[in-house]
Simulated scan of single mutants.
Amino acid sequence: MSIRLTRDQTFQVVCNLRTPTAKGTVVGSGMFILKDEKSPYLLTASHVAHDCNPSTQVVISDNNGNCQTFLLSQLNKTLNWTHHSIADVSVLPIILETSIIPILQGRFFPVDQLKFTQTPPSRDDYLTAVGFPNGLGGVGKFSPFTFRSHASSSLITLPRFDTQIPSDFFTLENPSIGGYSGGPVFDLGYVIVGNMTTTTGPTVCHGIMHGTISDTTGGKIAAVTPCFYVKDII
């Protein structure tokens, strides 16, 4: 069954990842996805996953809208991530033990609503990025940030900023901010114009935030890893 999420409802499928280090806290974003009842995953960017360790905290919302925190190792004790060999995406299989099942109930986004075809989103579509810029929204009240944008390119091949391996991306008109990395970029499936809401279909995840492309002129655009890469690792 397909689902359509409002911007507020996207909060239930995303999480903030916070890894304490000697130099401070490394932050990123992630999303819970479900292939079938026996195959739940945590999806994020590979450069976020590589920073994670058994002390990494996963932050979600409790029933009162406050931050609820647990250790990443509660999802998978061995933290055996599957990393894509080319693209900046990784998944962590979630072991649904008794203690974690109530916490994750209703938090998974269906895998079949990830855009697996190798086509970019239309430049006319409103896209919504969800994440935790600089870790904001992951302490106290749970409040992921969203921003709307349009695709500004078709699929283009660029070197990843972390490994320099060439990979396909599409770009957004607006820049990303550190901490958004690993967060989803959705077409929510509806458009609001004035007092009218027009539905266009179910919510579709087009990609996972990679980072910001910038130059010495001050120009900045966001680079997004297309979801068709996720198909290779689940």
Rank of each mutant, 00 (worst) to 15 (best):
S153G: 08
L42K: 02
G140R: 09
I3N: 04
S55C: 07
C52L: 11
T56G: 06
T200M: 11
H210V: 00
P159D: 12
T128L: 05
L136S: 12
S181L: 04
T171G: 09
E173T: 15
S214T: 10
T157I: 14
R107V: 06
Q68G: 00
S29E: 04
D168M: 13
P20Y: 00
A87H: 01
T200N: 11
P226Y: 04
F32V: 07
I60Q: 07
T25K: 10
R18T: 02
Q105T: 12
Q12W: 04
Q113D: 08
S61I: 05
A87W: 01
S153V: 08
D8N: 12
T119N: 14
G207F: 02
T163Y: 11
C52Y: 02
Q9E: 15
S61A: 15
V130F: 07
N134L: 13
I221K: 07
S167M: 13
I208M: 10
G106P: 06
I100A: 02
S149G: 08
P166V: 14
A87G: 01
A49H: 02
Y180S: 01
T44E: 01
A45V: 05
R148K: 13
V224F: 03
K220L: 02
Q74E: 15
P20K: 07
G189V: 07
R160Y: 04
G30P: 01
I33R: 01
R18W: 04
I100Y: 07
D125C: 10
G179F: 05
L155I: 10
Y41F: 15
A223S: 13
N76L: 06
L96R: 12
I233M: 03
T157R: 14
W81V: 03
P175T: 07
T21P: 06
L188E: 04
W81R: 11
Y190L: 08
A49F: 05
G135W: 04
T128I: 12
E97I: 14
G135N: 08
C15P: 01
L72G: 05
G211A: 10
L136W: 05
N80Q: 13
Q12P: 03
R7H: 02
L72M: 14
I208K: 05
Y190N: 10
P166R: 10
S99P: 00
C15L: 08
I165D: 13
S149V: 06
N134D: 09
F116N: 11
V185E: 03
Y190C: 11
L172H: 11
P159K: 12
T56V: 04
P54T: 05
D8R: 13
Q12A: 14
T157C: 13
C52Q: 02
R107M: 07
G219A: 11
L127F: 08
P54F: 03
Y126L: 13
F169I: 15
F169M: 05
P133F: 07
